[in-house]
């Protein structure tokens, strides 16, 4: 009986894992003005989203100069900062996102090497 229970819970885990990978990604990219670094970061994240999460992501780009109060609310120090709101856990990925492998690690789409 205990064997069965064990198997059940491991099935549960597998199911949850499947559900999680199917989860929608809720991403926010915070930039400061339309600098070349900002543009680079926007291009990079758009491309990565299309390549890796097509159809299951939700990306919002926010200019902190327009909404400075968000800097404190989101505890942003470095820009550009990409915040993965969902799925949990919350993650901050900083930089112009030109290193795709690191972005994928940050999004938990790749195991840490």
């Amino acid at each position: 009986m205990s064997d069965k229970k064990l198997r059940d819970s491991s099935d549960d885990f597998e199911q949850h894992l499947d559900a999680m990978t199917e989860d929608k990604y809720s991403l926010r990219l915070y930039v400061a003005g339309m600098s070349t670094m900002s543009m680079r970061a926007i291009d990079n994240i758009k491309r990565i989203c299309e390549e890796e999460m097509k159809g299951r992501y939700d990306l919002e780009v926010i200019d902190l100069y327009q909404r400075p109060s968000l800097v404190a609310d989101e505890q942003i120090i470095a820009v550009p900062t990409l915040i993965k709101k969902l799925p949990h856990p919350l993650r901050h990925i900083i930089g112009d996102l030109s290193n795709k492998e690191r972005v994928l690690v940050g999004l938990d789409l790749r195991k840490k090497i």
């Binding site: 400061a32 670094m37 820009v79 690690v105």
Partner: peptide, 19 residues
Amino acid sequence: GIVEAGEFNLEGLFIRLAC
């Protein structure tokens, strides 16, 4: 929780301090 993926600056801190 911070992952670095490219060049960045500390403009967030500047904006916050300016506010």
